[in-house]
Amino acid sequence: MIKILKYSFFDLIRSKWSLIYFLFYLAVTFGLLYMSSDSSKAFLSLSNIVLLITPLTGTLFGALYYYNSKEFNELLLALPIRRSAIFIGRYLGLSLSLSLSFLAGVCIPFLFYGFQKAIGPGGFALFLMTGVMLTLIFSAISFLIALKNDNTIKGFGICLLVWLFLSILFDGIFLILLVYFERYPLDKLALALTLLNPIDLSRIIMTLQMDISALLGYTGAVFRRFFGSASGIIYASLALMFWIAVPVWLILIISRRKDF
């Protein structure tokens, strides 16, 4: 598995898309830090961009990479290697190269400007971790969808729908539920629903550690009241890990039974 990971990673890190992704974060982070006088505002804008773009790139690259390398998968499958090693290795190669583009793109500008008082090194590390987790989650989900659907158009369609649902529609549905059932105690329902959306969980982690109450939103506030800031972050992070583990486990199961 490590060998497959290594070669997938080296292949991907040299592709122009990894470079574009890296340059995108580099430009955005530099731009935000340069233009805003208030570093906490810059950081907040960056968080919002990460919450939108990281899942989208994970989704698109995951499916694109799988469909693009279908025939290469066949070559690997004919070698004396376990199926699980092939697919987990390829998935990790993909998500690590994406994570590296993200990390390098965001970290380099911050090295120039320093952490500033808004976040501090601990908060910054947590922010980076959340971005990496989102990458791991969404590339796993789209890799899984692509593995399950041999039809490229259908696979891409489902991937984009999942992203659209989790990053945009989910909030709307959530809000409608809250308004519709406003007479009932909704804390626990809200908590449960939040666990169902990795993007929401990431948002909560980022806002909890920045400690900006105004931006916590309803679910963030519920989270803080239930767990407090520190353990709220821990519980949300655990839930994110669960979000990585489940698709990876399904990749294992499906790859074991699939005909290629």
């Binding site: 060998k3 070669y7 997938s8 080296f10 292949d11 991907l12 040299r14 592709s15 693009n68 390398s69 279908k70 025939e71 290469f72 066949e74 070559l75 004919a78 070698l79 004396p80 290697i81 376990r82 199926r83």
Partner: peptide
């Protein structure tokens, strides 16, 4: 899966990781 150590396979369509060189592919 170990038995595939004894098999050489030539697939119908040749597609490889695009950004590796021929030398790297052979090493891989």
């Amino acid at each position: 899966w170990e038995y595939r150590q004894a098999i050489g396979y030539l697939p119908q369509i040749a597609r490889f990781p695009e950004n590796l060189t021929v030398q790297e592919l052979i090493r891989m």
